[in-house]
């Protein structure tokens, strides 16, 4: 019995699928070869995981069996709902953020500068318009005479 035999029969030894003679020889080799022994000690607990019982989350089967037959994915439905709420929240946040940014930008903008002694634009405009109209009245008055 040598290392090669151990390497090619390791899992079959663990599953007790080798002959009694092979088993005895393999165990004798493991007693003499530290590297094969170490390998066996590492692989055995890994391979044994395959037979370990597994269980779902608490109450999974109760939830599943209490559903009306053919009911679709309660977990996924709730996930879809959460995803929907998240999307709505993201849209609202985006709108709030963009509105506040716009407000910040406009409030920070410079107002048209008005110099001391200068008439505001509209006032100046109406003033000029009045003057023009007054001139025209004078023209009409002079023309009628």
């Amino acid at each position: 019995m040598n290392c090669h035999f151990v390497h090619t029969h390791l899992l079959f030894y663990l599953d007790q699928e080798i002959s009694p003679g092979e088993k005895e020889g393999l165990e004798t080799h493991l007693g003499q070869c530290s590297s094969c022994k170490s390998l066996m000690e590492k692989i055995k607990p890994v391979y044994e995981q395959a037979g370990e019982p597994v269980s779902p989350s608490d109450g999974f089967f109760e939830r599943l069996s209490s559903l009306p037959p053919g009911e679709k994915y309660p977990v996924r439905h709730s996930l879809h709902f959460i995803s929907f709420v998240r999307r709505i929240a993201a849209v609202i946040l985006f709108m709030l953020a963009s509105t506040s940014l716009t407000l910040l930008y406009t409030s920070g903008q410079k107002q048209p500068t008005q110099y001391a002694g200068e008439e505001p634009f509209f006032e100046r405009y109406f003033h000029e318009l009045d003057e023009e109209l007054a001139d025209n009245d004078y023209y009409f008055l002079t023309a009628t005479h």
Partner: peptide, 22 residues
């Protein structure tokens, strides 16, 4: 249920996927 779940777990090694598949 347990039978189906164990098989699914064998394929996925993941509780969530195994439950979904069950």
């Amino acid at each position: 249920g347990q039978m189906v779940y164990s098989t699914a777990f064998g394929f996925f090694n993941n509780r969530t996927d195994a439950e979904d598949l069950t």
